[in-house]
């Protein structure tokens, strides 16, 4: 493997469409649940909650896909762990965009097969795991990409939504780094167990407010972000 491939895949400028999504931050800002960088209504608390729930689930799926678990079963497991219809739509949209970019960047028979199986898009973490595999990266790399994206998306969105100081937002991400390491370790362990025991071994952490506010957000007539 080449470590530089990890930077290509994790780069916010990788053309996979992530910039159009706020990871629930837009709904939380509008509801007054994020008002600044830290504190009870802070971006940091928001990202931390997201990291240990939806973030761990996504990273587990990505790690399992990178390890070669059956992507169709992983996609079903992602559906069962994403009860919000709006979030399933967003995950498939992101998966489809990532698929397009990844196939052009790292051509792979496995990516081609997944694209044929899910013409409207597979869940993004599953595509991410296979893209990492195609790029010669491992499960840990896939989990790191997933976990970083899970918090950097809301951080970037909050800078735009609240005019939050970008230095403060980046400070939040840096403070969360040790917790990202922890979540990656748990995700990779779960991914390994998934290969041996099946998808029930994957984490299933849920964040009720992310699920609820995704449906609230989907009902708005005008939005800055797609989710």
């Amino acid at each position: 493997m080449t470590r530089a491939a990890l930077l290509v895949l994790a780069d916010g400028r990788f053309p996979a469409g992530g910039h159009a999504h706020s990871g629930g931050a837009e709904a939380a800002v509008k509801a007054g649940r994020i008002t600044g960088a830290s504190g009870a209504a802070g971006l940091e608390e928001f990202c931390q909650g997201r990291l240990h729930t939806a973030g761990l689930v996504s990273a587990g799926l990505a790690a399992a896909a990178a390890l070669g678990a059956d992507p169709v079963e992983l996609d079903g497991a992602a559906d069962a762990r994403t009860p919000s219809a709006a979030l399933r739509v967003a995950a498939r949209k992101l998966g489809r965009q990532l698929m397009r970019a990844a196939r052009a960047t790292w051509p792979s028979g496995e990516l081609d097969a997944l694209a044929r199986e899910f013409p409207k898009g597979a869940h993004q973490p599953v595509v991410l795991g296979l893209a990492a595999r195609a790029a010669g990266l491992g499960a840990e790399d896939a989990a790191y990409c997933s976990v970083y994206e899970c918090v950097s998306g809301p951080a970037t969105a909050t800078v735009r939504l609240l005019s939050l100081d970008p230095f403060e937002a980046t400070g939040v991400l840096a403070r969360l780094a040790p917790e990202m390491d922890v979540v990656v370790r748990r995700a990779v362990e779960a991914g390994r167990r998934c290969v041996d025991e099946g998808v029930d071994a994957l984490p299933a952490g849920s964040a009720p407010l992310l699920e609820i506010s995704a449906e609230v957000h989907a009902g708005w007539p005008v939005r800055l972000f797609a989710s």
Binding site: G24, A28, R33, I34, A40, A41, G42, E45, F46, C47, Q48, G49, R50, L51, H52, T53, G76, A77, A80, R81, P83, E179, V199, D200, P203, A204, G205, S206, A207, P208, L209, L210
Partner: peptide
């Protein structure tokens, strides 16, 4: 035999950080 729903909620002291924050329970 097909899983329709698989969800886990963890909260209270000792649960992973952010459980009471704006993404999860918000108080």
């Amino acid at each position: 035999g097909r899983t329709l729903l698989d969800q886990e909620v963890a909260c209270g002291p000792g649960a992973p950080g952010g459980w009471d924050g704006p993404a999860v329970l918000a108080g």
